[in-house]
Amino acid sequence: MVSASIVGVLAGLILAPLLGGIINRVKALFAGRSGQPLLQPYRDIAKLLRKGAVFSTTTGEMFGVGPAIGVAAGVVGLTLLPLGGSRAPVAFSGDFLLLLGLLALARFCIVLAALDTGSAFEGMGASREVAFSALAEPAMLLAVGALVRATDAQSLSAAVGAVWKQVWQPSMPAAVLVAAALAVVLLCENARIPFDDPNTHLELTMIHEVMVLDHSGPDFGLVLYGGALKLWIFSALLAGVLVPVRCGSPWLDAVATVIGTFCVAAGGGAVESTMARLRLVRVPQLLVGAAVMAALAVLLVR
């Protein structure tokens, strides 16, 4: 049991950047391009970690602390993350809030690192980032509430582990709503289309990317890796709810969930290929919609 949990954390640490590669390949497939290699995100991070850096003369200590905290929060978050039926190394009642808190802490520090540069563009990105994430938070907590209500388990590992037995059969609509809310939050928190376009060329339209414009070298490598960890956490959580494989062996459950995680990433790539980015004024509506879906799920359970 323990070994499977530890392997789950290692899998997250190692496989996280792969999700970005999968998304890019799927997008290339849709566009009829051959696309970048699957392992390109690893190469990017490795290259950045080997480089020197250029710092803005405006920045101070916060600028360097932000990316480090982003990665540290992601790593600690991984220790709370179950892979389907395979429990996380650490599980306790209410660990949902710690996981969300860690991700919020990472965001808070990246936002401050952006403000540290004194650039109007980075300020703009930071301002949008905090606005959207503030609206995504209630949706996330209500989805957690629905999950807890459906499974009667108060920790992440127990709740996700119990999904197969209880949620999918009696309260199908609630499960669908929870999954939909989680998916919306995933796309928002990880700066994907329809909330943010990771490939945009214009700083004015960026949200997440513009915040890290001034980061270079190892710092930027940490930013990318922290982002990958965050995407992994959200995708694995969604996959844990969506993939109903609970065969009793933590190893098989974990493998099924990892495959599910890849499928979630592929789904994200498909969304990005077929949708345009929403206008900024529409984004809050979608997030409030997600919160409403999650609230409905709370009501519909059982």
Partner: peptide
């Protein structure tokens, strides 16, 4: 459920405000 939603919104907005 109302407390959950409120906690989320308050936490997110407070982080925005102190950022």
């Amino acid at each position: 459920a109302a407390v959950l939603a409120a906690l989320g919104l308050i936490g997110g907005l407070a982080a925005a405000c102190f950022a």
